[in-house]
């Protein structure tokens, strides 16, 4: 699809206005994906805003969002297309009854395997839609290698071959966004067809801005406390480091509780929102750095 933005800056500003604060590198990658009409491969920790980016882009470009959520064992039938078996059966029965001499089997078969009986799934939908949508292929790392191979033709040429029918080619190239949480390494062949962007945790300033934007009710003190605590947590060897999604949840919960400042007791009570594994909690309990942070937090109230 044609790139409606004149510069990276303009795109960044539009994203900003829509409530998504992207760092310049990410904005550049999106801009290039639009200009060069190449798929965009986003990699990063869970909860840093990969999925959200696709949503925002579809909103900004005013195109529908076609979403394919990957899972282990996803295949052609659920990702690309399937045959509408019920309608095929009806057609065959009708052909039997309506044609007195009995229909020729080849004809029936040709009729039954035609576009009319195709049940499109997200990938095919994205190809045939006009105007082109934003296609989100979420969490590619969860699918298996067979599925990656299936994506290769699609992402390389934006076309799909269905043996019985022929080749579908996109009239307008959709904006394809692939995301991965890096639970598994995605094959190089797939990466080669995409533009790559690593989405990092936002730096404290941007995080603060995002939180302030999302929960306007939050006071400055609380905001600072949350950003600081989350930054410390991300620096520790946790099995699951808290992403933006977690810090947003936390901030919202704190706002809901009507807190004005972070206190150690409050943190203790709501820690489950950001740290979600027993091992991690355990590690925090034994960590000096965390204890110091809490102590300082507690002292801040008296002094």
């Amino acid at each position: 699809m044609k790139n409606p933005y004149r510069s990276v800056g303009e795109l960044a500003d539009t994203l900003d206005a829509a409530g998504y604060l992207a760092d310049p590198a990410l904005a550049t990658a999106v801009f290039l994906a639009l200009s060069l009409e190449r798929p965009l491969f986003l990699e990063g920790q869970p909860g840093v805003g990969k999925t959200a980016l696709a949503g925002v882009m579809s909103q900004l470009l005013n195109r529908p969002l076609v979403r394919l959520q990957c899972y282990y064992g996803i295949d052609l039938k659920s990702a690309a297309y399937d045959w509408n078996y019920a309608r095929q059966m009806v057609h065959i029965r009708l052909a039997e009854t309506l044609t007195p001499a009995g229909a020729r089997p080849e004809d029936v078969e040709r009729d039954v395997y035609s576009r009319d009986y195709l049940a499109p799934r997200p990938l095919l939908t994205a190809l045939t839609m006009n105007p082109a949508p934003v296609l989100l292929i979420d969490e590619v790392d969860r699918a298996d290698e067979a599925f990656e191979a299936l994506l290769l033709e699609f992402l390389g040429e934006f076309q799909m071959t269905i043996p019985e029918v022929g080749t579908f080619r996109a009239e307008e190239i959709p904006l394809a966004v692939l995301t991965s949480n890096r639970t598994r390494d995605v094959h190089d062949a797939l990466r080669r067809r995409c533009l790559y962007a690593w989405v990092d945790f936002p730096d404290p300033d941007r995080e603060r801005a995002i939180l302030a934007r999302r929960c306007p009710a939050l006071g400055d003190d609380l905001l600072d406390g949350v950003v600081k605590a989350v930054a410390v947590l991300r620096d520790m060897p946790l099995a699951k480091r808290p992403g933006l999604a977690e810090s947003l949840d936390w901030a919202q919960a704190l706002a809901r509780l009507g807190a004005e400042r972070l206190t150690p007791e409050l943190v203790e009570r709501t820690l489950g929102l950001i740290v979600k594994y027993y091992d991690d909690l355990d590690l925090l309990r034994r960590s000096d750095r965390w204890r110091l942070l809490l102590e300082r937090m507690g002292r801040g109230g008296h002094g």
């Binding site: 990276v8 310049p24 590198a25 290039l32 990699e43 390494d185 990466r191 080669r192 790559y196 690593w198």
Partner: peptide, 16 residues
């Protein structure tokens, strides 16, 4: 330079 770097990185990098 930030844009140039990001653009080239998007094209030439494959992983973290």
């Amino acid at each position: 330079p930030v844009e140039v770097e990001a653009a080239l990185a998007a094209l030439w990098c494959r992983d973290w």
